[in-house]
């Protein structure tokens, strides 16, 4: 069963075609990455799933309901830009967001206590939000997103602006949610994170879907890459059979043409530069991203 199904969804802002003929499915229990450059239409798509915006055409099914606003209470959403009421106390605001999701005050308060302990914030429960550090504030926002035990959690750019410790924290939360059988969607433009965490991805640019599916399947659609550590003139890396060179100085990622003879390529490269290592592997999401988005832009 799918948590989300979009069929030919369009959204306009005035003349601007923000989301164009978008169709994809998010399987239940998946960790699903929304990838795309800034302004690709990720947030607009998420807002339509959350019934904050409404599509101009197309159909949108969330948790099996084609009137997504009816299932709002079973969704948890952490927007990219998020804040807290500065004057409210931590437990108070978490409980408030719980009640806004249809929980009774008592249940919400009890759940808030549990989550505060789990996130190590039990001592901050009666602090005002304005007294919190940035990291603590982020934890409070995440707790507020999860308080009502949502079946589907959507995190918009959850890693942006986080220090490494908090990046790990958020990653662990996502993995915990997956472990509990929840569906998690998060958007990012940092491919390494998506590669580490996601089961499936959707890549969009300028409101148009470029590709989607399980990470392994997506990678399968692309020819392999050669990872080389080398000394020498990077211009010499350009050989017939190599589509694109992603030069990083001492190493480079080379996209290989489909059906090319990688053994012959290795021999050629050994002549052209001094090779320190040579790995043949499937393309990284970063490589796929750059290649696909680059193509769609031209």
């Amino acid at each position: 069963m799918n948590s989300i199904e979009l069929t030919s969804v369009n959204k306009f802002f005035g003349e601007h075609h923000a989301v164009s003929d978008m169709s994809f499915e998010v399987p239940e229990g998946a960790v699903y990455g929304f990838l795309g450059p800034n302004g690709a239409g990720k947030t607009s798509t998420i807002r339509m799933i959350m019934s904050i915006l409404y599509p101009d055409s197309g159909t949108l099914k969330v948790l099996g309901d084609d009137q997504p606003e009816r299932v709002k209470d079973r969704l948890g959403y952490l927007p990219e830009e998020k804040g807290l009421y500065k004057k409210m106390k931590v437990k108070e605001i978490i409980t408030y967001f719980g009640t806004l999701k249809g929980m009774s005050r008592r249940d919400a308060a009890a759940e808030a206590d549990k989550l505060l302990v789990r996130f190590g914030l039990e001592d901050a429960a009666s602090k005002r939000c304005e007294e919190m550090s940035k990291g603590m504030g982020q934890k409070v926002q995440i707790i507020s997103t999860l308080i009502h035990d949502p079946a589907l959690v959507i995190l918009d750019e959850p890693f942006s602006g986080l220090d490494p410790i908090n990046v790990e924290l958020v990653r662990d939360i996502i993995l915990d949610l997956k472990h509990d059988g929840k569906t998690v969607i998060f958007s990012t433009h940092i491919m390494e994170q998506a590669e580490q965490i996601c089961d499936s991805i959707l890549l969009i640019n300028k409101g148009v879907k470029l590709l989607d599916g399980k990470v392994a399947e997506v990678k399968g659609q692309f020819s392999s890459t050669l990872l080389v550590d080398y000394d020498g003139d990077p211009a010499n890396l350009n050989r017939p059979g190599i589509v694109r060179v992603n030069n990083m100085g001492n190493s480079a990622e080379l996209s290989v043409e489909e059906g090319a003879d990688t053994q012959a390529l290795l021999r050629e490269l050994m002549d052209a530069v001094k090779l320190n290592s040579f790995t043949l592997k499937e393309p990284s999401l970063h490589e796929i991203f750059v290649r696909t988005v680059g193509e769609s832009d031209t």
Partner: peptide
Amino acid sequence: SNKLVEVLLSSVS
């Protein structure tokens, strides 16, 4: 300006 609106709108219309 506190960026609270979107969180609220995910719960209420």
